[in-house]
Design a protein around this nucleic acid. Sequence first.
DNA 1: TTCTCTAAGATTGTCGACAATTAATGACTA
DNA 2: TAGTCATTAATTGTCGACAATCTTAGAGAA
Lengths: 234, 234
Amino acid sequence: MTQDAFSKTPITTASDQVFVDMRREIVEGTIEQGSKISEPELAKRYGVSRATLREALNRLESCYLVERKANVGCRVVALTAERLIEVYEVRSALEGLACRLAADNMAADEVQSLKQLLNQHLQTQRVKEGESYYQEAGDLDFHYRIIKGSKNDHLIHLLSNGLYQLIRMYRVQMGMVGPRVSKAFDEHLAIINAIESHDGELAELLMKRHISASQANVQNKFDLLAAQKSAVNK
Amino acid sequence: MTQDAFSKTPITTASDQVFVDMRREIVEGTIEQGSKISEPELAKRYGVSRATLREALNRLESCYLVERKANVGCRVVALTAERLIEVYEVRSALEGLACRLAADNMAADEVQSLKQLLNQHLQTQRVKEGESYYQEAGDLDFHYRIIKGSKNDHLIHLLSNGLYQLIRMYRVQMGMVGPRVSKAFDEHLAIINAIESHDGELAELLMKRHISASQANVQNKFDLLAAQKSAVNK
DNA sequence: TTCTCTAAGATTGTCGACAATTAATGACTA
DNA sequence: TAGTCATTAATTGTCGACAATCTTAGAGAA
């Protein structure tokens, strides 16, 4: 049976499948951000009944990808600079915590495996310098492993099933590429070193800084877009 | 129209009502922690169809009060010492953040109003020394106001709609009373003073400590219960 | 023209019934 | 007696239809 690549839970029911499919389409922008969702239309498109679709919508709502109003309907969440700040403030606090916990709770072999993953990223990075691979799968995988290393199930769920899709959405649709790639690598290295020496306080600090830098990066993109827009409007 | 006392959103649909009712029953223990939920039975009890009930269950799941397994069903979350630690770790990080933000973003009149509330609590406390009022409505109200003062909507939603009911559940069902009442008051006072002087760093630290103390309190209760149990089993 | 109100249309909320899956019962075998 | 398998019962997942609500279009009045 297939399983969800993020929550690692098996996909059994039809609404599971619709949920995963819609999530991908929303994160990748196939279903446009801010757009209204028509239940009858989407139900037809996915070949399921409205009840099944609504089940999926409920779950999308609980990971912040759609917003509902009673008797009005669903909207895909809109990406705004304000919301980006809010989400990253929360992310920083939670992943900072995860990192501190990981410094205590991550098993030695998990740490080794993560270091290996980093080396692998380095290779890949050299080959496709500046491309988005690292920022996508690679970077996320790094963060995922640390989150998992916290061994705090509630935290893991909150981040993996809750916040991460929204963060991914910002990064995918804002098109994160460029010179931050190599800098991010160094930051990852410093973090894993702090974890390896069980220095939770340092690991937390470094992770928070890493995330701040990442935020500034997305923020820049927003500013650029805003500048473009105001130039066009002249 | 009535409205939800916690999320402040209006209760319009039938599933809204069922959600709020069930939430209260679960938090207060009327619906027993860890127990299995029968959809047909509860639907009959609340006088709604299964579809409506399932809508409510979905929402209860997203605030961590029930857990679902595909083709198996729902269970009310079980209160365990391990989970308590996990939840409080997350809570500490998030409310610490809220407190730091509140030091920057809370309006002067909001601060004044909160100080007034504290005074009011002091009066009440004197009257019903040792009773659970303070720990319930009062303490929660204090925390709510600070969370709201963070002005971070995502954080506010995450705490008010997400984590807080679960925390309430632990506190209500573990029966929080006793000598911590007056100590908690002093801690609250110190926190609001830090916020008033816009010292975010201090406010965050104090809040985290305050929450740690609160956790230790619930933890004690767990240990006591465990000791009782093992004594009975002899 | 602009605003208000009304009526039609479309969308969401809710229901009861059926299909698919899981859990419980009991017969059968070792 | 204990364990395994098949059958039955109960529960969850899914569907299509109806009811309640909101939105839109258009007529009429100021």
